[in-house]
Design a protein around this nucleic acid. Structure first.
Lengths: 94, 94, 94, 94
DNA sequence: TCGCCTGATAGTTGCC
DNA sequence: GGCAACTATCAGGCGA
């Protein structure tokens, strides 16, 4: 734990490091928000072109679920293989 | 001590009603927690019988996803039908 | 130790046991969800009667905290009683 | 005929447009997720360097609030300036 | 445009 | 002690 008291005086090394981390996070959150706004804009554009955004959202959600489910399938396969001692790279190879 | 303390005057009836609502919620939350505890117990029982609970949780999750996806499929079908003005009982259009 | 590698062959005992456990879990989760839905309904009913559900949720939370503290007090009391050899029922509990 | 996937007569153009919109959305959501993952990574890095991430999240939140308040102040100022016919054409934002 | 509702996100708790 | 699931809170989108 960093009760390092490295903060000799004000603005120690830890403080600088912390400031840097915070700023990186803030920059990333800003970019994340930009993407969210862009997505919102695309939906607005779609709506203004006569598309049903509810349907579109459903489509996007469904396609996301499909890929998520595929991931799950792979995860559970791995788990089975491990449970059966047949993991690909588990070192255990009878 | 359950006399009509505050029930006279303004807000009395509302107070009784509120109390009733709160108690119903609390009872339901209690029951919900009981179920959660039961689930936890089943997993513990499974583990004590040599089953891999991680695999089990994954299985449960996957089966839940399957049914959720089926629901989504139906939802999107409904949306399409609506978007095409072919909804089962909704011929009304603004 | 229970040997669950009984899964060799077609539908071993372990497989049946696993299926049973999974189904119990799913039933319990279903019931848990029903309670959650009921709670939601009560809040909706409250809202339709003019109550502020945010305030209600706060109340429920506070009362839960209170009860938690009370239980903690009881736990401490039990501890003392045990330490004094005055526990109501020693040990056996299902 | 250059556009083979264009099923004219059955909303082909719209279909292409819809596909394009969906793909733009999915790409943006992907990028959004990348940023979220990056943020998560920075917090992990911070933690591995001994920082308390809960505190850091609090700091980020507070700074976001501060900036929101500052922007509100600027908005009010703009409003006043407009009301006075003194709105700047293109103001620089720090 | 306002209020409702659903989905996203941050915090909390329990498990490993 | 770290990590993941769950829960509660909050904001954005939709309908009236």
């Amino acid at each position: 734990m960093a009760e390092t008291t490295d903060t000799r005086g004000t603005g120690g090394v830890a403080a600088d490091q912390l400031r840097s981390l915070i700023e990186r996070i803030e920059r990333l959150e800003e970019e994340k928000k930009e993407r969210a706004d862009d997505i919102r804009d695309v939906y607005l554009e779609a709506k203004s072109n006569g598309f049903d955004t509810a349907v579109m959202r459903q489509v996007v959600k469904l396609r996301k679920q499909d890929s998520a489910e595929r991931q799950e399938q792979e995860a559970i396969l791995d788990l089975y293989l491990h449970a059966l001692g047949m993991a690909p790279d588990a070192g255990e190879r009878a």
